[in-house]
Amino acid sequence: MERFSLDAAHLLAGGMVLVSFMMLYQNRILGLLNVFAAHAVVLSLSVAWQAYIQAAPHLYVTAAIALILKAIIIPVALHHMVVRLGVHRDIETVGGIGPTMLMGIGLVALSMVVMLPAAAEADPIAREDLALALSVILLGLLMMVTRQNAISQIVGFMSLENGLVLAATGARGMPLVVEISVAFSVLVAFIVIGVFLFRIRERFDTIDTQALDDFREGRE
């Protein structure tokens, strides 16, 4: 049982790294959003599995937040936004997909080389989960660097954040995990609202609330 629970935890964390790679080569925004939703689902499964093997019921809350907010609400909201604003065109990548994938492989190797010896004294679940979580974080950073489109940068940031939640839940008995994941969700919500405002600004050349204010002042 012990062996199996370890393997399952590593399988799920490794699955997140794999989905991170899938995000790197998506060249359409809508496809990217779908893959991000899959990333969040794997995260939620992984956190729920940690909650089960650590017998830590509060982690189920984190898993539920990941599932509802990141796998459903945010992708759907971004999807609507993208379709309505008509920006579902190809994503430009810097340096092409091949070199980006190679860099991604390099980053995963780097995080293995750094984390496995450093965390040797921690227990094995945490040790390998931590290395995989760092891979997810670095791949998210790589995505933010290589994409120029605001929405794909945000998806990169959110996948980075998924890596952080994975690391925090892998650290057995870490307090404040639920609070921190809520704090991060607030941050993400702000980002999404920010994008929304920015898109409006780009389209109408101004924020329309300001135009409304001017209009009202004119009538008073």
């Binding site: 965390a119 945490a126 760092l134 950073l141 933010m144 940031f157 954040e161 650290a171 941050l187």
Partner: peptide, 16 residues
């Protein structure tokens, strides 16, 4: 946000 995210990873490592 990126800075804060990296700081959180560091914080988790301190806990570990």
């Amino acid at each position: 946000s990126v800075g804060i995210a990296l700081a959180l990873f560091g914080t988790i490592l301190i806990y570990m």
